[in-house]
């Protein structure tokens, strides 16, 4: 406990870096997954390819991906960009599927009546399909958030600092307080991100809270 209090500044700055390394890829990954999922949902053949491809991507070991990044991107070994890009890939791997499922969950007759009323494809996407897909996409986003928080900690092994440092250092030097701080930090961060996504989802889906059966 005293270790934690003594190193509060470090813990806070590592937490912020961790948030950044896990959160930014979450947002970028979502922005890339949306059009990808949209395309996949429209073209049946693309759909299978995208879903299988995304599943495969997620099976690449994170350390391998972190190490590969500088080679692929031409970045420095210690550049945090490596982690951001790798985490974005993981996010996409998890989220594309949710976006496809979410868009697929829009009732046929709703999508069709939008088209019949003269919604252009783009307008229909933003005005009808996407809002209705929010619950499914948000569920995927929550999984991706937790997954990101945990995978990012591996980045300590390639020298990119975040909460994972506490785990590695605490383990190597057998400092119990440091290990606890690392674990608690990751868990709390995951919970906070999860809560944030839930609140956002709630704000975006007021209709789901409207009680059923107002009148006979």
């Amino acid at each position: 406990m005293s270790w934690i209090l003594d190193h509060l500044d470090d813990i806070v700055s590592l937490t912020l870096r961790h948030t950044w390394l896990a959160g930014v890829p979450l947002v970028i990954g979502l922005l890339i997954s949306l059009p990808l999922g949209w395309l996949a949902n429209r073209h049946r053949r693309l759909r299978g390819a995208v879903i299988v491809g995304a599943g495969l991507l997620y099976t690449i070991p994170s350390l391998a991906l972190f190490v590969l990044m500088p080679l692929l991107l031409g970045t420095g070994i210690l550049d945090p960009i490596n982690v951001v890009v790798a985490m974005t890939i993981y996010t996409i791997a998890l989220l594309v599927r949710s976006v496809v499922d979410g868009l697929g969950s829009v009732p046929d007759e709703v999508a069709r009546s939008a088209t019949a009323m003269g919604y252009t494809p783009v307008r229909r996407f933003f005005g009808v399909d996407l809002p209705l897909a929010v619950p499914v996409i948000a569920a995927g986003l929550r999984v991706a958030a937790v997954s990101n928080v945990s995978i990012v900690s591996i980045a300590s092994l390639i020298g990119v600092n975040q909460l994972g440092d506490l785990l590695v250092d605490g383990y190597n030097r057998a400092i119990g307080g440091e290990l606890v701080a690392g674990i608690l930090g990751c868990v709390l961060l995951a919970l906070v991100l999860d809560l944030a996504i839930r609140l956002l989802e709630r704000a975006l889906t007021p209709w789901r809270r409207a009680g059923q059966g107002g009148a006979a």
Partner: peptide, 13 residues
């Protein structure tokens, strides 16, 4: 255009 069940947008008032 009118269909069975109205085909209303569930997310709009």
């Amino acid at each position: 255009y009118v269909i069975q069940h109205g085909g209303l947008f569930p997310h709009h008032t």
